[in-house]
Design a protein around this nucleic acid. Structure first.
Length: 857
DNA sequence: GTCGTGCGTTTCC
DNA sequence: GTCCGACGCATTCGG
DNA sequence: CCGAATGCGTCGGACGGAAACGCACGAC
């Protein structure tokens, strides 16, 4: 490894390493020598530091001055000639073998050329929803609610109109003989099928057979899904989204029910239940490569187009549209697309990446219309249309309420009952479907039972069982201790330490002899991944946890790295260095202590419907603890603010993140994820106003935003200042905490500070190379939860570790410090000081032996 | 062919 | 993980 | 009394650091 002391940063392909520090003195407007330490500048904002500046709550009002919403955030590129245009549409796929070095060179030099080239091809994409939001702001309707509603309707109409126009334009693409005779019982009439391009599941009084664009028994065309997703993308009203999707599902159920599962998976970007651990293994970079190869562009060209547009799906769609197709590929079918994705996920071993890319290309070239957009986004892993799990569940419930599966075909149940009655029916179905999914997050199983026996049979046939992970209860952040009381007023509640580890849901099934079957026990993560192989040590000592009489159970726990020698909890960073799969308990390098805090199932009976008080009682009765291996989460049943406050401080001192606050009795203490998934409160020091670490950092670079952040910068590289080495050392990237307005302001602000290449006194890792570099001018206040030693960031490098700097955990933007100049930012020494001041670091037992030295030399 | 390194992806928080 | 924005729903406010 | 305003919870999607892991690729 290159020692970074002799070089400002280790980016070898950049040429700036040659530039000497002296050149910096000539170029920069401010000279580090001139810095006057501002009256003994102290560490900024440590634990409620009350410097007069930091206390000024000058937030939005002042910033409004520089607000210019109209700006397109198009920064430096707007200066460039715009008429070079469409040159590179010429299909020339000759540039195959790009060595990584070559690619890098292109990356660096493309700044002027390819971006301009792509400019007119890929305009910054302003999503329909963004547009809508803007319109909404402009129109100050006396009745915003109604205004919004009618607006969305109009827009949907407009959208579908456009669709029709497009459809007629591309008449040649429309398959003309789409007339079929459908033999479904009471539908004896001849049904003329809708052309695929005109498929419109958002129309009112949607008829699942007549309005579909395929016939009974036929595989569902991928274009039907793409059209549905396209409509949804243009809609922001959630209920409307659900209606559109449910209409599509109704058609699938009635015509081709076996395609419903792939349809749902494609809507969710999922391949299988999480605990099957099936992943695509393909993301942004390889996708861009695939698109480039298909459309005769270099990786750098695609990259800059994606940056410009903020959406790879759109880029892929436009690139595909611009291409002439040599021969018509067969139409994509949903089941085939989904099967192909699964196939890609299963490819492993040598040359698998290329095989995956080839497979993607074969799909991509067969894309028509907007299919490419959604195919590519599926592969990216996010649809970005405002549709996710909860809406899919709702849509499915609405679909089965409207068109119930079963022998007696009924196409629109709503017709036969009052609106209120139907609404109640839907609500009930939604509740059942959601609950079922929470207890058994397996779409295959859920759909199988749903299509077979309908909603009525779902609850009984498909419910919680040992071995299938259930969705865990999550917690809401709380900004003040008094908010806890506000929420839990007059209720019994308890506070537990919030341990800084990894969620572990432990399942122990019963053997036929009614003893616990430890051999088949399993451990699942917060996201239902199967972590059984990760914790052989925990599994091996499971027998010490269960008391006599326990035959089966499901436990909710937190696994925390543990220093057995000193009986101390270790930071999350230590825990995360555990191998993901470990053969046996002896091979485990990082021991853990498991903190059990809930019991969800005991001896054949689910407890999710019991109160926490009851579950906790059973937990304490039936399970053993042993310091350092199995412990119950430290808890205290508080009733006053003062008690909570004190307990919080205690928790933090003992290397915990804070507190979890939970209701003990009543309906709200049940483990009912379907009804409310964030039913607990979390209380952390860094949420509290005026408490927690804050740093004033300098923006030295920016990254172009994607999706809803297209057109502005979506993130920034920020640094601390080190007067001794005269460097700005990267501290972290900053990507959350700003309002849309903040982002606009920052983007405008930075325009005048953009520089061609990073200063040679910027110390950063090449992995953090910014899209746009800026001179060190804008100072921002950044809040974080922790400071950690970083392999990639350089703040306070060599002060705590020879080649590791410090970075921030969970960094978020607080405000612009317009009152501060770059040289007044938090210094490297102060960052180091903040790092060392952390309770968790102070708690660490200093090793007098070589272990410490080991790290150093 | 083997080994180490770099890069990309996924999964925790 | 944090955070923001939009939506939907219930409750309160005001003419 | 009814519509408007307000408050709150949910949902979805921007974005963060760090580590493991698996494949690609160059050095030997």
């Amino acid at each position: 490894m290159v020692s970074s002391s002799d070089r400002v940063h280790t980016e070898t392909s950049h040429n700036m390493a040659q530039r000497s520090i002296t050149s910096f003195f000539k170029k920069t407007p401010f000279t580090p020598m001139e810095i006057k330490s501002n009256g003994g500048s102290k560490v900024s904002h440590v634990n409620g530091d009350t410097s007069p500046i930091s206390d000024e709550k000058d937030k939005p009002s002042e910033r409004q001055q520089s607000n210019s919403i109209d700006n397109d955030g198009d920064s430096q590129d707007s200066l460039k000639p715009k008429n070079k245009a469409k040159r590179q549409r010429v299909i020339s796929s000759s540039s195959e073998s790009e060595s990584p070095v070559k690619v890098k060179k292109e990356d660096l030099s493309d700044n002027d050329d390819s971006i301009t080239l792509n400019k007119s091809v890929n305009k910054t994409y302003d999503s329909p929803k963004n547009k809508k939001a803007k319109i909404k702001k402009e129109i100050k309707s006396p009745s915003p609610k109604k205004g919004a509603k009618s607006l969305s309707r109009d827009e949907v109409k407009e959208n579908s109109l456009k669709l029709k126009i497009v459809g007629s334009k591309e008449k040649d693409n429309i398959v003309k003989n789409t007339e079929h005779i459908d033999n479904i019982e009471n539908e004896s009439e001849e049904i003329q099928k809708v052309a695929e391009n005109a498929y419109n599941p958002s129309k009112s009084k949607y008829h699942p057979i007549k309005d579909a664009c395929w016939s009974k028994g036929e595989p569902v065309p991928y274009l039907a899904l793409a059209k549905t997703l396209d409509l949804i993308e243009g809609t922001s009203a959630r209920l409307k989204i659900i209606e559109i999707l449910s209409n599509f599902y109704r058609s699938v159920m009635v015509l081709t029910s076996e395609d419903l599962l792939p349809c749902i998976y494609l809507c969710l970007n999922q391949l299988a239940p999480a605990y099957h651990s099936l992943e695509l293994g393909i993301a942004e970079t390889y996708l861009m490569k695939a698109i480039g190869q298909c459309t005769g562009r270099t990786l750098a060209q695609v990259k800059s187009a994606v940056q410009k547009c903020g959406d790879m799906g759109r880029v892929a769609e436009q690139a595909r549209a611009a291409q002439k197709t040599m021969f018509a590929a067969p139409k994509l079918q949903i089941r085939k697309v989904f099967a192909a994705l699964k196939e890609i996920a299963h490819m492993t071993g040598q040359a698998s990446v290329n095989k995956k890319i080839n497979k993607i290309q074969s799909l991509y070239v067969a894309c028509r219309d907007c299919e490419a957009r959604f195919l590519i986004r599926s592969l990216e892993g996010k649809l970005r249309i405002g549709l996710a799990e909860q809406s899919v569940l709702h849509a499915l419930a609405l679909a089965v309420a409207t068109t119930p599966p079963g022998p007696n075909l009924q196409l629109d149940a709503a017709q036969h009952m009052s609106a209120d009655k139907f609404k109640a029916l839907v609500e009930q179905h939604v509740a059942v479907v959601r609950r079922t999914y929470c207890e058994c997050p397996d779409w295959a199983e859920l759909l199988h039972e749903l299509l077979r026996g309908g909603v009525a049979a779902l609850a009984s046939r498909c419910s919680m069982r040992v071995g299938v992970p259930l969705r865990p209860m999550l917690a809401h952040p709380t900004r003040a201790v008094r908010d806890v009381l506000a929420r839990f007023e007059n209720e019994e509640f308890t506070c537990e330490y919030k341990y800084d580890g990894e969620r572990a849901q432990i399942h122990v099934p019963a053997a036929p002899d009614d003893k616990p079957d430890f051999a088949n026990a399993a451990i699942f993560s917060r996201n239902q991944e199967n972590n059984t192989a990760k914790y052989p040590d925990v599994l091996s000592r499971l027998p010490t946890l269960l008391k006599e009489g326990v035959s089966s159970c499901v436990l909710d726990c937190e696994a925390v790295a543990f220093d057995a020698a000193n009986g101390k909890l270790l930071p999350f960073q230590v825990l995360s260095s555990r191998k993901r799969a470990c053969a046996s308990a002896e091979d485990v390098r990082v021991p853990v202590c498991v903190f059990v805090f809930d019991l969800l199932y005991l001896n054949g009976a689910p407890l999710v419907g019991s109160t926490l008080a009851h579950r906790r009682k059973l937990l304490r009765e039936h399970f053993c603890t042993q310091p350092g291996t199995w412990q119950f989460a430290t808890s205290k049943d508080c009733s006053t603010i003062e008690e909570v406050q004190l307990f919080l401080e205690e928790a933090v001192k003992e290397s915990c993140e804070g507190l979890m606050v939970k209701m003990l009795t009543g309906d709200n203490s049940k483990y009912d994820i379907a009804r409310r998934s964030h039913n607990w409160l979390k209380l952390k020091k860094d949420y509290l106003e005026g408490v927690g670490d804050t740093v004033d950092a300098v923006i030295i670079g920016a990254y172009r935003g994607k999706g809803k952040r297209a057109g502005v910068y979506g993130g920034f590289l920020v640094a601390c200042y080190d007067p001794e080495s005269e460097q700005f050392q990267s501290l972290c990237k900053l990507g959350t905490g700003f309002s849309d307005e903040d982002l606009q302001i920052l983007s405008d602000m930075l325009k005048e500070h953009i520089i061609d290449s990073p200063r040679n006194y910027y110390n950063y890792d090449s992995s953090h190379s910014a899209d746009v570099w800026t001179s060190a001018a804008v100072v921002v206040e950044v809040r974080c939860a922790d400071l950690s030693l970083s392999p990639a960031h350089r703040a306070a490098i060599a002060r705590l570790h020879p080649h590791k700097g410090v970075s921030l955990r969970f960094p978020r933007f607080v405000r612009v410090r317009e009152d501060k100049a770059a040289e007044q930012a938090t210094t490297a020494a102060q960052v180091a000081q903040l790092y060392l001041a952390q309770d968790q670091i102070k708690n660490q037992v200093k090793q007098p032996d070589a272990a410490h030295e080991d790290d150093f030399y």
